[in-house]
Amino acid sequence: MNSLLEVFQRPDFLSQLVVHVELSVVALLIGVAIALPAAIAVSRSPLASTIVINIANTGRAVPSLAILALVFPLLGFGFAPSLVALVLLAIPPILINASTGLMQVSPQVIDAARGMGLSDGQILGRIKLPIAAPVIFAGIRTSAVQVVASATLATFIGGGGLGELIVLGFQRNDLAIQIGGSLTVAMLAIITEVSFGALERTFTPKGLRIARKHRGK
């Protein structure tokens, strides 16, 4: 137990935790910045949306280690190549959910909005995005959890992060470092899962929550 506490006081513990969070946050932000506009861009064509969803679905099947590993021969070791790999991992879940969410907005609702004189921009901003928000946020949550988990693997291509500690534990056969690093990563993933879940609930408009409850009956 004592040795575990020592792990948390190591100078590299804090610095790797920071790198881990940095990698995850930046990758997620870039992922959102790419996937969300892309989903919006294709959302007016059901065919394009379906194609994008299918491609992204196949993209999700690609193992995260494979993506990191394939980035290494192309871009080499380090933080930036790791970031690129994590962005690639972050995109598919957001793309899938945003496209699906925007496609699921009832055509009658959109017709009514258009018929009342909302412009295309207003229909997107005031109708489609708020109604699709819960599904979009669910995608961001999946993506966030996956990025936090995969950031652990960044250590293999020199990206740093808490994976560094786990690997160090293995190399030195130091159980405390190994367990300390693992528990921290696990906590980080669970915190991400829980806090994004809360965010998802916050961004679900009240009317939709009520509608879901009524459908459930």
Partner: peptide, 23 residues
């Protein structure tokens, strides 16, 4: 313009199309 025109013409449809996220 179409949007301006539509703001001055009432529009009601069968499936109603109420916005589920608005009161």
């Amino acid at each position: 313009s179409g949007t301006k025109l539509r703001r001055h013409i009432g529009y009601a449809i069968q499936q109603i199309g109420l916005f589920p996220h608005r009161t």
